[in-house]
Design a protein around this nucleic acid. Structure first.
Length: 489
DNA sequence: GAGTTTGAAACT
DNA sequence: CAGTTTCAAACTC
């Protein structure tokens, strides 16, 4: 393994021991024109039960209120693997992150080192300074200030990682819960140019850390004893270790699970429960996630977003792809492909599923789907696959991914998790494509009749509008009838 | 496992 | 930006 791979490996392992945070999310206004195909998506209080298959990805935004210096920055959604190699890509991407999307409030130029310094400066008296010192081969872990009881560090591993035998600086996580609500940031001071990552603490579902080398593997990567001990060392209590600064910022000291969005969806058969050593002594079980679908690309060389591995920022490994260039042996091609993708769409590597409020609301597809034939009730639909409802952002036709319709119910029964909550039936559910088509047919018929009769344009317009009114009346009547509500004309 | 369907991504 | 093509995953048989 070369040096780069070592770095990548250790970096991902550290990252993967965090988790991602659903952050506050601002919704676009509902697009009224799309209501007809989506119905009531923005149901107040709507929530969907989180389930075992819930996945997250690095979040686009993180608010560190109330601390001004780091008070508002977003987290790069670009996959961690690439971040780990950020310097490696700079020759292609230009200035670091210069081509990164920037419509969000993320200070893309802000390095983790700067964040660290900003965090350090949170407390005027320095009492809350975290260790920004890392682990080095020769020096081991060092506290930034040994006199600081809170100056904590998270060792990457208990045992020596291969990288430790070289002179590669092992990254040390600086994990802080910047909102006190579970949002945390992982900073890797060893690579101060790296973009900080948002993680989520959820110790009930600690995911299996993944390395890029493992990411596409279909083989068993059961956690090692080392992992278990590492986890134990960090959170021996099973609870997030936090420290609140004098500025009111809480730092989580423990790593959390990390998983990315759609394509690292947990599968029930892929969850390995690791029984920690000494569990009989009351230590908790840790669930590790190990999942990453191998791709089967044949024509894209795995250098286009068609490839899930590439889109996820992973290199292919143990995939079934042909003529794959998405690996460390083809870094140049890969870098160029990344640049091309970013040129086409600066947000190409952003998570598609943005999170909404932290808590019981899961999120929505940032771009929305465009399904035409699946009714958004099959995994072709990205919203459905992500187990979220379609929203007004979507441009889908005949969408049924918004309510507890019989078809949805039956399809949900076949899914691994039937506990998902869906809001009550949308009154617009009866506006099917057929209804829309029939309505359009009626309007066209009126137009044709007006033309045939030689009516004026104004008259024709009136006829069409009247016809439209009648159609709407029928639709509304149908809606009320289906909801068993008396409709008074 | 082969063939078909589907929708996102890429291209024009 | 819209229409078309390419692509790989999802799905069906």
């Amino acid at each position: 393994m070369n040096e780069l791979e070592d770095q990548e490996y250790s970096y991902k392992r550290d990252l993967s021991e965090g988790s991602l945070v659903p952050s506050h999310h601002t919704h676009d206004s509902p697009r009224m024109a799309n209501l007809i195909s989506h119905g009531m998506h923005s149901v107040p209080g709507y929530s969907r039960m989180e389930d075992d298959y819930t996945t997250y990805r690095i979040l686009p935004q993180l608010t560190c209120d109330p601390v001004p210096p780091v008070a508002h920055f977003s987290l790069a959604s670009y996959p961690e693997y690439l971040l780990a190699q950020s310097s490696h890509y700079q020759h292609v991407l230009g200035q670091p992150y210069s081509s990164w999307p920037s419509q969000e409030a993320f200070h893309y130029g802000m390095s983790s080192g700067e964040i660290c310094r900003a965090v350090t400066s949170i407390s005027s008296d320095g009492a809350d300074v975290y260790s920004l010192e890392g682990y080095s081969t020769d020096q081991g872990f060092r506290h930034h200030d040994r006199n600081q009881p809170h100056a904590l560090h998270v060792p990457p591993h208990d045992q020596k990682h291969p990288a430790e035998t070289s002179n590669i600086c092992q990254p040390v996580q600086i994990v802080c819960d910047v909102t006190g609500g579970g949002q945390v940031v992982v900073l890797n001071h060893c690579s101060p140019d790296q973009i900080p990552h948002s993680l989520m603490m959820d110790l009930n579902t600690v995911s299996q850390p993944k390395t890029s080398e493992q990411s596409c593997s279909t083989e068993d990567h059961s956690p090692t004893e080392k992992d278990a001990r590492h986890s134990e060392k960090i959170t021996s209590t099973g609870l997030p270790q936090t420290h609140k600064t004098s500025a009111g910022v809480t730092f989580n000291l423990a790593p959390g699970p990390y998983a990315s969005q759609l394509h690292q969806t947990l599968c029930p058969t892929q969850i390995v429960e690791l029984e920690e050593e000494g569990q009989s002594k009351g230590r908790r079980r840790v669930k590790w996630e190990k999942s990453k679908r191998p791709c089967n690309c044949t024509k894209s060389q795995c250098l286009k977003l068609y490839c899930e591995c590439f889109a996820n920022g992973d290199v292919c490994n143990n995939c079934k792809c042909l003529n794959c260039y998405n690996n460390t042996e083809h870094n140049l091609e890969r870098s160029q492909a990344i640049k091309a993708c970013l040129d086409r769409n600066p947000g190409a590597f952003r998570p598609k599923i943005g999170s909404k409020k932290q808590g019981n609301v899961k999120g929505c597809h940032t771009k929305g789907c465009n399904c035409k034939r699946s009714g958004c009730l099959k995994n072709y639909c990205e919203c459905y696959e992500a187990k979220i409802m379609c929203t007004s952002t979507c441009k889908c036709v005949g969408c049924r991914n918004y309510e507890e319709s019989p078809s949805k119910k039956s399809s949900e029964r076949d899914r691994p998790d039937s506990s998902i909550y869906y809001p009550t039936r949308s009154p617009l559910a009866c506006i099917t494509p057929d209804v829309v088509e029939a309505t359009c047919g009626c309007l066209l018929a009126q137009a044709e009749e007006a033309e045939k009769e030689g009516y004026t344009a104004a008259h024709a317009e009136r006829m069409i509008l009247e016809e439209f009114g009648q159609c709407l009346t029928q639709i509304v009547r149908s809606i009320f009838k289906s909801n068993s509500v008396q409709f008074n004309e």
